[in-house]
Design a protein around this nucleic acid. Sequence first.
DNA 1: GAAGAAGTCAATCGATCGATTTAATTTATG
DNA 2: CATAAATTAAATCGATCGATTGACTTCTTC
Lengths: 261, 261
Amino acid sequence: MNAEAVAMERPEFDAEPIAEVVLEADMGAELSQLPASRHYRRARQDRGAETRKSLLLAALDVFGRYGFEGAATRDIAKRAGANLAAIVYHFGSKDALHRAVAEYVVEQMQARIGDSITAAADALKGNIDRPTARRLLQRIVDVHIDSMLGEAEAELWGRFIMREQMEPSSTFDVIYDFMMQCQSTTTNLVALLLDLDPRSEEATLRSFAISGQFVIFCVGRPMVLKKLGRDTLATKDREEIRRVVAEHIDLLVGEALVGEG
Amino acid sequence: MNAEAVAMERPEFDAEPIAEVVLEADMGAELSQLPASRHYRRARQDRGAETRKSLLLAALDVFGRYGFEGAATRDIAKRAGANLAAIVYHFGSKDALHRAVAEYVVEQMQARIGDSITAAADALKGNIDRPTARRLLQRIVDVHIDSMLGEAEAELWGRFIMREQMEPSSTFDVIYDFMMQCQSTTTNLVALLLDLDPRSEEATLRSFAISGQFVIFCVGRPMVLKKLGRDTLATKDREEIRRVVAEHIDLLVGEALVGEG
DNA sequence: GAAGAAGTCAATCGATCGATTTAATTTATG
DNA sequence: CATAAATTAAATCGATCGATTGACTTCTTC
């Protein structure tokens, strides 16, 4: 079951290069934004990156839909347009692939909403006034909405996270920690705006309720789309959602949003 | 794959009694509230009802966690404390069991929140004032919160529904229709309270955002529990959530809740 | 209390699918 | 051309799948 363990027991199995490949976290990151030019024949010096990225995305989808045990490596390889053996070659095992997916998800989310969180967390260390807190909160909310509803891949992240929440594996901690960090920062901002103790249950509940206003559009997306009569959320829809949620928060925290935008 | 088809092809297989058993929707409904008395030796006249109920609940759990294909009938039978063959005996096939679970979920949800929906829908046919609309809306919200967070089984309904939403099977329509009906009624109430066209995107989005405030406590329950430092939501927590959400809605629709506690 | 219906059970069917491994082949690069 | 990286088809071997069977137990009914 554990491919690394197997590799250790078998010295003739050259595990080192694979391990290195797996450990470099930025695999194919630069490749994903490659120009579509057909004549761009470079990047062949690392053909593997393409396959790794395909496998990673396919695994993200399949793991998210069927869970770790329910996911079939055959299915993942087929969707990725890669050979079955490529999974072991590039990642080491099904386990390791799953771990890589979890890390990838956090990485992507961190890249999109990390700044807004650290900005708020840093500001909260000092003394900030209510308009500033309101603006920092809105920043977090907007970034969440844009990343959760804006890009197609985000649907996969959401599914993967929801599934991990149902049957938490050992790799879930890293996702969990990140989300708790987001929630804590949001709670602190809400507490400040509502003159509540940040550690009170009241602050926590109000913070979750506020977050729920946009999370619903992620977890209930099929229902929302059906109701709106669309098959995808347009940019305009997303802006409407941002506007509505912003107005709601204005009403809820009794501090209208002012400045920058 | 299809057991009914097989049954049709094999006249010697006595399918009728099974079909009847499957079709009666109230299977074991009265049995679930049996007194725990050890000497209550009745109900042996229909031992099957107990097994059916066990299988149904186990299937609800397993289908919800692993999806239809990922679910193993062996797993379901084991969790139900029943024999593998009992599934085919009582339901006809894995497919039919899945269908029965979907119907059961709608049935249970209907029993808990159906009244609040039809009450609101009926009232909306005539002319109602804002305080009444506000009260009807709160009724729907409270009933949702109580049923989604109050009973242990509701966690299973939620998981099953979320999973069906991910990979909709043919049996999903019945669930979907019910949920859309809830959402439509809520939207109409919200539109009335905010002076919006009930069919406008604005009304839909605001309605979803409002619903999200309590749905988050269902889909994000593990996160909420972790943050609160509990391992289960107490009655007091549920009351707090009801209070917070009610206050929020007061602020959002500009119509404070009055009357009947 | 015997007949028979209802329900349960262990054992088993054939088939599919599971992850992993092997060996052979293709591809790019110095 | 030589080398290493990457890909591929094929095979391994076990596990598991849903469904079925027929014997067995429990309950009802006449």
